[in-house]
Nucleic acid binder design. Sequence first.
DNA 1: GGCAGCGTGAGAATGATTGTCAAAACAGCA
DNA 2: TGCTGTTTTGACAATCATTCTCACGCTGCC
Lengths: 128, 128
Amino acid sequence: MTTTRRPTRQQSAVIDALGSTQDFTSAQDLHAQLRESGEKVGLATVYRTLSTLADSGDVDVLRTGEGEAVYRKCSTGHHHHLLCRVCGRTVEVEGPTVERWTDAVAAEHGFTDVAHTLEIVGTCSSCR
Amino acid sequence: MTTTRRPTRQQSAVIDALGSTQDFTSAQDLHAQLRESGEKVGLATVYRTLSTLADSGDVDVLRTGEGEAVYRKCSTGHHHHLLCRVCGRTVEVEGPTVERWTDAVAAEHGFTDVAHTLEIVGTCSSCR
DNA sequence: GGCAGCGTGAGAATGATTGTCAAAACAGCA
DNA sequence: TGCTGTTTTGACAATCATTCTCACGCTGCC
């Protein structure tokens, strides 16, 4: 993967399937979905494509309470997730405060090219 | 589990081990740690104890990026890590700002029993 | 002592994810 | 168009955390 290549049929299928919903979807579900719609894509390929996309920041990844990785297309803007530990519901939140703080702290310690991940887990009002 | 019972030796060992650090610790690590310190506790028991504690809300659980469950004794005052992506050096940082912000955001969305993870990755001054 | 009930632990089972490797698809070139 | 080296794919095996199973031992009670 030295250069940017045109996505293959399988990769496009994965991306399309992911784009067809707003929800977080697991690799397994995505694979089953592709199967049903007639696309022949191997499970390993689904995983490979997803992790590549995740690496390049084109999709969001997080873990459900059961430890399953779930993915969602969401390219615009950097944001964080508020996750319910009971029902798995997620809320997207933005935090200029945090962005500024992390940058400041990193700079203070001489770090550059800073990236960060922040995940908030709690119990949502309906699962109380 | 109809009545509250006195914790067994094994359960106490797990609780103590968990209490001996501020960090989130995986069940596997906890088990290894107990082994090293001479406590004979089965892995299954570590898992059982941890999930019981988690259920009763005595510990926080969340998932690492690798899908490992990590546990921490519920308390305030923890820190985050600033990680150099080149040399792997880590710096511990504290952030009342972030703590306050996450709590506020969570509350705003009706979330309770909030925990969070924040990791900052960058390039440190010597690896520039 | 003897019995009942629960916690324990070794190892098997499970399920998601990753690794392996031969075959297929593809790009560039003659 | 046919050839060749490279990349991607996919069936399957391997891995790893976690959960399940079930015989065994401990504790309290008669």
